[in-house]
Every structure is written in C-alpha cells, then in structure tokens.
C-alpha cells in the first residue's frame, strides 16, 4: 500500500534541465542502503551541495532556494532516464514530492514512481515552458480523478494521460503485487501449458 493520491494543490520546485538521469536524482554511492527510507536527504545530492558537504549548499540550485517549495517537482524533458534504480523514486517521495511534471518521462522511472504513489504528469513542451515562466508564488492544482493540471492564477489547464488501471491504483493506494497475488491460481494454470 502506498498513500492514496487524488488532488494536489501546491507551489512547485522548477528544475529546468533536460535529460535528468537517475544518477543525478540519487548518485550510486547512496544505493547501499537495504531499506526504502531516508533517501530524500540525498535527492540531487551532487547538484545540491559543493564538495559533498551539507554545510555548503549550492545557492543557485532550486532545492536550496527558499523561494521554491511544495509537493510538485517540475523538470525538463526526459526526466528519470538511465539507471532503473527505484531509489530515485524513493528519494523523490521521501523528500516530500507527490507529483512530478515534465514534458517526457523515461519509462522505468515512470513505473517506479507510480509503484510508490508518486504521480508523473506529462504535459506538452509548451505547457511546461509556461510553468517554468511562472513566479515562485504560483501554485498548480493536479487532479488525478479529472486528469487535469491547472495553473491556478490564470486557470490555464492541460489534460494528462494515465491508464485506467494505474489511475485506480494511485487513487486508492493499491499495489500491483496485491493484484498479482490475487490471480496466483491463474498464473499456476498458465505454467502448466
């Protein structure tokens, strides 16, 4: 079970960089943990700090900018490419983001996010640029049931796609594994052939 998700209304953190790979989201040296907790403090570690030191934050990185906050991360095209490490989705979730908005997501990251109750929202490049151009006070509203994302100040809205099965899982916090375990007899039947 993950946390159910439906409507998220929040300010957002913009990272206007394309092709952000999972090695940036969580560098390999932090993959040695054997639990799912605590990855948020190392989210974007090497873009966030100089010399790998939490006392030396890089002032120009959005996560260190006190003007940016919220439960929505907005990033450039092809977010989450590279390594399949689910630790990237755990780090995004643990940091406190419930939604990631981009014009394009890498497949494995998208699956991993959904499996952890984090909603990837794909918008057009044009809509993404509109969000990047907003001021830091602006808020967005993501409505999973309606499959819409709205810029609250102007009312501009975009629809996003998600398959019905995944939508139901996220709305209710269901896991794929619960479903698979429930059809174990059918799997065993399949194996006989």
């Amino acid at each position: 079970m993950s946390k159910p998700l439906n409507i998220v209304k929040s300010r957002f953190v913009p990272i206007a960089i394309e092709n952000i790979d999972t090695d940036q989201i969580i560098p390999a040296r932090f993959l040695k943990a054997t639990t799912r907790e605590g990855f948020g403090k190392n989210l974007f570690r090497d873009w966030r700090y100089n010399n790998d030191n939490e006392l030396e934050p890089k002032a120009d990185f959005p996560l260190n900018n006190p003007n940016f906050s919220g439960e929505i991360l907005v990033a450039g095209k092809n977010f989450g490419c590279g390594s399949s490490r689910e630790h990237a989705a755990w780090a995004v979730d643990d940091y406190g983001f419930r939604v990631v908005v981009s014009s394009f997501f890498a497949d494995i990251f998208k699956n991993n996010a959904q499996n952890n109750g984090v909603l990837p929202v794909t918008v057009s490049e044009e809509f993404l640029q509109k969000i990047f151009a907003l001021g830091n006070e602006a808020t967005l509203t993501v409505n999973l049931e309606a499959q819409t994302i709205t810029i609250d100040a102007t009312g501009e809205q975009a629809k996003f796609d998600i398959n019905n099965y995944k939508k139901t899982c996220l709305l209710n916090g269901y896991d794929d594994i619960d479903y698979l375990l429930s059809i174990k007899n059918e799997i065993k039947e399949f194996e006989k052939n």
């Binding site: 399949s84 490490r85 689910e86 630790h87 989705a89 494995i108 699956n111 991993n112 499996n115 952890n116 099965y165 896991d175 794929d176 594994i177 479903y179 698979l180 375990l181 174990k184 799997i187 194996e191």
Partner: peptide
C-alpha cells in the same frame, strides 16, 4: 528489460509483471 525493486518483489512473488 530492466525493472525497479517493487517489480523485483512482484517477480519473486508471482513470476509475473504488469
């Protein structure tokens, strides 16, 4: 193809993926 850890658990448990 590559998968995440939640999916590793699914395959260990059921030999299947969605």
């Amino acid at each position: 193809f590559g998968i995440g850890t939640s999916e590793v658990e699914m395959v260990l448990a059921t030999q299947c993926l969605l």
